[in-house]
Nucleic acid binder design. Structure first.
Lengths: 219, 219
DNA sequence: ATATATTGTTAAAAAATAATTAAAAATATA
DNA sequence: TATATTTTTAATTATTTTTTAACAATATAT
């Protein structure tokens, strides 16, 4: 029987932000912080910070606050960042290549072990030491190497099929940059990065502000 | 007096997804669809679809459903996609370049007009016809050309200062790929794409599933 | 005409966020 | 050193927001 209730996505999505702020504090040699101070910095309520953290345990102390280093490391553990993850990039186009070249990932323990593409001009190439293979070789690679996450940066039309294949070969995480929704078994996690959608919401909000301003002027 | 209540972000975030699905239907020559059918396809409740759409007006018809083309175009208008937007890229690194090379943007009316960087090796170069300028030239450029959105793909350390400058020169939208939170005036919209955060939440969820599975086996 | 389908809208339920309270710990004061 | 005061958490309660469900009104189709 599982007594722990599931943590909501809203909370999980805030964890990396806490982690980042705590990392910054740590770098500034700040050893302790109260939820109130942190709330000012992060622009959320102190109450929410405490509520969020208490989903995972009582990390603070009355009258003292939170020990920055301790809390930082606890969140690190909660997020599972205390080990290395192997990722593959599927689709060696612009974004795929950019991610391979993004050196910060490796510092955090995210290691890209291979890139797969169909383009003969890319196959055989090496991007920052990472080899680009023919997609034909993907099954073999996934079955012989631990692959925690597949980064999907391929065209809409191919993404679903490839994701299905990868899932059937045991890949449990899809970081999906392709502009489609993937239907996966429930033990496979999909995290979408829909850049176009993100830009569209930005544009909506810009226009909204503009309209408000116009209507205010019209008064 | 503004009688319209503000639309929540949750709703706005779903709009691009509706837009995409309707576009797909349109391409498949489907002329009408009910909220129920759409709910099956999109994996959300029909009720939510109707509720979402009715924030903006009654686009459907009882007993009939929604006319796909009409609704598609209405959402297009709501999102403000019926005009062209000028964007600049600030930070010509991996991701910045990838976005310039992403040809789909232009098809949608998102035109990248310039790239700015500090790296002398990049300055003067041209990426898919878009020139890379010295950041020194940015103020002049922004003041002489309409810039709707700045795409921020620069290091953490510089992002805040640059964003402040851009805002003071009149840029109303920041598409922020830099791994910091930007404090902007309220008429400037920031849309964050925090890739590292996104990957971290993915990893959390993968571990969560793994833990569940282990605890189930242990029973 | 009548039965069916399906919306827009209102109501209810659920979830998320914010505020409050009580206990504990740290600090200040006598 | 002992005691009072302040700080601050954890837990509880309240509020707000979001989502889902129910249903009356209306158009379509037969």
């Amino acid at each position: 029987m599982n007594s722990e209730r599931k943590i909501s996505s809203a909370v999980i999505n805030r964890l990396p932000r806490y982690y980042r702020y705590l990392g910054d504090l740590l770098e500034s040699d700040i050893t302790r912080i109260s939820s109130k101070e942190l709330s000012t910095k992060m622009n959320i309520t102190a109450s929410q910070i405490r509520q969020d953290l208490n989903n995972f345990g009582g990390f603070g102390q009355q009258g003292y606050g939170y020990n920055v280093e301790y809390l930082y490391n606890e969140i690190k553990k909660i997020l599972g960042l205390d080990r290395v993850y192997n990722l593959i990039v599927v689709g060696g186009g612009n974004i795929g290549q950019a991610l391979v070249n993004y050196t910060n990932f490796e510092k955090r323990g995210f290691v890209i072990t291979a890139v797969f593409d169909v383009n003969p001009r890319l196959i055989g190439m090496t991007i920052r030491g990472v080899e680009v293979y023919d997609v034909d070789k993907m099954e073999e690679f996934v079955k012989n190497n631990k692959v925690d996450v597949a980064i999907l940066t391929l065209p809409r039309s191919q993404a679903s099929k490839v994701a299905n294949d990868l899932a059937s070969w045991g890949v449990k995480g899809m970081w999906n940059f392709s502009h489609v929704d993937l239907a996966m078994p429930e033990d496979v996690i999909v995290e979408n990065v829909h850049l176009t959608d993100s830009l569209m919401t930005l544009l909506y909000k810009i226009n909204e502000v503009e309209m408000e301003e116009n209507s205010n002027n019209g008064n």
